[in-house]
Structure formats: C-alpha cells, structure tokens
C-alpha cells in the first residue's frame, strides 16, 4: 500500500490548510502520479485538482510531488516515491483556490506583460512571412513551453516578487519573440525589460531548469535577454 499525503484546503470553510493521508493499492505497478490521484478521487470525491490531457501536453496538472514540481500525468511513482511515501502539494507561491488547485492569475499576468505574440509593422506579404530554416531553428527550445507554471512556482525570486519579476516561463516566452527573425518590436520589448525586477531578479538559481517537464532551459533564455540588453545599452 502506497502512503499518500494530500494537501487539503478550502479557503471558504477551513481556517488553515491540513494534510490528509490516503492508502492506495497500486497493485505493484509503476503508475503515474495522476493515476494515483484518480484512485484517491474514487475514495474521496471532494479532493480537488486540475487535469486534462493526461499525457504532458496541456500543462494542467502541475503539482509539487515530494518537494519537486512536475506534471502528475508524466511523473512515474518510481521517479518520485521515497520510502513508500508520496506527499502531494499545490504549486508553491500561488494562492490556493481549493486543495491542489491554485490561482494562476499572477502567472498569466506576467505572461501577458511580455506580449507573447508576433509584432511586425511592415506591410504583410501576399502569402506569409518567410523565415530561413536557420532562423526557425533559433526558436527550438523556446516555443515548446506549455505554460504549466512548474518553473516559475519553483523559483524563489518569483515567490517573493510574483507581481514584479516576470519569472522563468514569461522570460522564456519573451526571448522566444526577441529571437524571432519576423518580429520587429525587439527594441520596444527590450526597453520594457530593463528595470531591476522584470529580468534582473533572476539570480541564476536554476530551479526552473531542474523542474521543466519539457526539458526547456529558461535560465539560458534569460542569459540571452541579458546579453541583448547589454549590447543594446553599451
């Protein structure tokens, strides 16, 4: 029997969060954490969590499992369970709506700030804006982000200043458009990032790199942004 401890909190009725223990019979199989959550849901239907695609594509079930953020649907028990124990908490640093469901507004607000869409004020060509394979290759490792928030909510700088520090996910997207050969707003984009918080709260802790379920590297993207700011200003 797997011992699972789940964070429970309903801000409307509970004065404080608490942990609830469950016993789950995995039948000796190396299930995914999401499977275990579904089994718990069958035991107690009031346990709340987000999920959708169950294959690491939608980014809904970002959770903190035994202290490390990840997607429940693609985290195997063998990757996270120690001493037959599994502790599941919501993503740290964001307000809890209910149990494992967090309010992602702050995270999305930072994403919105980087204007994550192509900006080009030159007249549109007849068919489409072309890009060389080399320029297209620059977007690899940037466009794959599924906005699961595992990275930003594992970042201490984001915990302390989620309203001012854009955070790894937002900055990865900021660089995705800075690096795009078709985007012409590079200078305006950079001008908005030059304050002491938006980019420069990153102290290179690299928790983001450690947890990203897509294997992306926000720290490297932040380094690129810093270099772009540097060459623009010196």
């Amino acid at each position: 029997m797997l011992q699972v401890s789940i964070y429970r909190y309903n801000p409307e009725t509970d004065s404080a969060p608490s942990m609830q223990d469950f016993q789950v019979d995995t039948g000796g199989k190396d299930l995914m954490v999401l499977d275990v959550l579904e089994m718990i849901k069958a035991q107690d239907t009031t346990v709340a969590y987000r999920r959708s695609c169950r294959e690491g594509v939608c980014g809904s079930d970002g959770l903190n499992m035994n202290g490390k953020n990840g997607l429940a649907c693609i985290t195997a028990l063998s990757d996270t369970v120690r001493d037959n124990k599994l502790v599941i908490r919501p993503l740290p640093g964001l307000p809890v709506v209910r149990d494992l469901v967090v309010d992602m507004s702050l995270f999305y607000r930072q994403y919105e700030k980087v204007q994550p869409f192509l900006q080009n004020n030159t007249p549109a060509p007849a068919i489409e804006r072309l890009q060389s394979p080399e320029d297209r290759a620059k977007l690899d490792g940037l466009y794959e982000c599924i906005l699961c928030a595992c990275c930003s909510t594992s970042c201490p700088s984001f915990w302390w200043n989620p309203d001012r520090f854009i955070g790894p996910a937002g900055l990865l997207q900021a660089y995705r458009f800075l690096a795009d050969s078709r985007d012409t707003a590079t200078d305006e984009r950079l001008a908005k990032l030059d304050d002491p918080f938006s980019v420069f709260r990153c102290h290179g802790i690299q928790n983001c790199v450690n947890v990203c379920p897509k294997g992306l590297n926000p720290t490297r993207a932040i380094g690129h942004i810093r270099n772009m700011l540097l060459s623009r200003a010196t």
């Binding site: 001012r164 001008a191 908005k192 002491p196 938006s198 980019v199 420069f200 540097l230 010196t234």
Partner: peptide, 18 residues
C-alpha cells in the same frame, strides 16, 4: 516597467553590470 527609485542605477542592467 517597474519603478525603483532606491536602486543604485535605477536600471536593472546598470546595477547588474556594476
């Protein structure tokens, strides 16, 4: 842009570089 009147150079980049 985030305002920060008490930071050293008022710009994240100049503080970082310095």
């Amino acid at each position: 842009m985030v305002r920060a009147v008490t930071s050293f150079g008022r710009s994240g980049l100049s503080d970082w570089l310095l």
